[in-house]
Amino acid sequence: MLQTYLAYGQWANRILIDRLTDLPDAVLDAPQPVVFGSIRRTYHHLLVIAQVWQAHLLGRPHGYTSRDPGHPPPMAQIGAALAELDAWFLDYGAGLKPEARTQVVHFTFIGGGDGAMTQEAILTHIVNHATYHRGHIVAMLNGAGISMANSDMPVFLTAPA
């Protein structure tokens, strides 16, 4: 199920990437009543947090001191980096032996404090976290009168291969 979940996350993020890439800056940067303040900054947050969790899995520093590190790069750059990370997570999950899935990874939260999760829980969280913020982005798009393809898991599971 983990591989299916990671593949779903990759698929759903691709739908988002495809929809956001050509939108005008006025839509992407319009102030929004959400924690990250705009579509672009919320999208960038998806990438930042994926990079943070990848670093935790690899046992290396990520270099971030904020979940919202300021001026996001261009949308195409965010999309390309997110797509690359999604592929990495899918490959990483595929390579995990059953005993490694339950291996605990210790880390420090960006805001401070120690944490510990299994590798499988981290990979599951990455997909869940992106789903949460894709929902914010879809709501912001809807508010701007812009629709997006359905990215629900049942759609993924029943889509032709």
Rank of each mutant, 00 (worst) to 15 (best):
L2V: 02
Q3T: 13
Y5D: 10
L6F: 02
L6T: 00
L6K: 00
Y8G: 04
G9K: 03
G9T: 01
W11D: 03
R14I: 03
I15H: 09
I15M: 08
I17Q: 12
D18Y: 04
R19W: 09
T21E: 12
L23N: 05
A26S: 15
A26L: 07
L28C: 00
D29S: 13
P33Q: 03
V34S: 03
V35D: 11
S38D: 02
R40C: 01
T42I: 03
L46N: 05
I49T: 13
Q51P: 05
G59T: 07
G59L: 06
G59V: 10
Y64E: 11
S66V: 09
D68R: 07
P73S: 12
P74Q: 10
E84N: 12
E84G: 14
A87F: 07
W88H: 02
F89P: 00
L90V: 14
G95A: 14
K97G: 13
K97P: 10
T102Q: 14
V105D: 04
I110G: 04
G112W: 07
G113H: 08
Q119T: 11
E120Y: 08
T131V: 11
Y132N: 08
H133E: 00
A139W: 09
A139R: 11
L141A: 06
A144C: 12
M148W: 03
M148C: 11
S151F: 04
D152Y: 05
P154A: 09
L157C: 06
L157Q: 10
A159M: 15
P160N: 13
P160A: 15
A161Q: 12
